[in-house]
């Protein structure tokens, strides 16, 4: 069989790439790649927002929204926003090789993210609690669960990410020069946060509240 794109195996064993990017060059590319990925995800969430504004409306009244309890949503939104602050602190701490602050901040981020997630699932979705909306509640239910669900999947990914970075930080894998893992985690976490800043008013604030009858 002919050799297609085979290396010069002159030296046998490990092949060396004469043009391999350095770690610093790789980090620059990683950063750009991650920002592009966030840009790509914008389209995902924009499509959900478009669905929300397309479906939750009435030809006479205009925009509608489901009548959902306001207080918990506001509290959990605040918790998520504050978690971003701690994420930022963790990143700074990693850059300064300050292990104690890093640990505390990562733990805070993780716990706050978890509170947000559990809060959405228990109080908003009504899993194991009082239900205000069901997936089958017309376009309200469908889009509500699609938006919060898609966001929750990203929060779960973020939590796993935070946990991994937290552990790796304690293994001493990040240094002043190279803490790309923490930075990536921070960018991702801020992005998830930012999405919620758009989702929260779209779900809870904009439009005329309509009560959903539930049995």
């Amino acid at each position: 069989m002919s050799a297609v794109a085979h290396g010069h195996d002159d030296h046998h064993g490990e092949l060396h790439n004469p043009m391999e990017p350095t770690r610093q060059e790789q980090i620059v590319m990683n950063r750009f790649g991650l920002w592009l990925f966030c840009f790509s995800e914008v389209f995902l969430f924009a499509a959900l927002l478009a669905a929300r504004f397309y479906l939750w409306r009435d030809p006479d009244v205009g925009a509608l929204r489901p009548d959902l309890p306001q207080a918990p949503a506001l509290i959990f939104t605040c918790v998520l926003l504050v978690s971003s602050f701690f994420m930022n602190r963790a990143e700074v701490a990693a850059a300064n090789e300050d292990r104690a602050t890093f640990n505390f901040s990562m733990a805070s981020t993780f716990v706050m993210g978890l509170i947000f997630l559990v809060g959405v699932i228990v109080l908003e979705w009504g899993v194991g609690g009082e239900t205000h909306i069901l997936p089958t509640s017309g376009a309200f239910g469908a889009v509500f669960f699609a938006m919060t669900g898609m966001h929750a999947i990203h929060v779960i990914t973020g939590l796993i990410f935070v946990a991994i970075v937290w552990r790796n930080g304690n293994l001493g894998n990040y240094s002043r020069e190279d803490h790309w893992g923490v930075e990536a985690c921070a960018i991702y976490w801020h992005f998830v946060d930012l999405v919620w800043i758009f989702f929260y008013p779209a779900i809870y604030l904009i439009g005329l509240a309509v009560h959903i009858p539930i049995h």
Binding site: T136, S137, A142, V210, I212
Partner: peptide
């Protein structure tokens, strides 16, 4: 059973003013 695309709705939801899919 999430209703994104069907313009059909349970009568009770319809009466309450809940929008249907499209």
């Amino acid at each position: 059973g999430m209703n994104f695309f069907t313009p059909i709705l349970d009568p009770e939801l319809l009466a309450a003013g809940v929008p249907a899919g499209d």
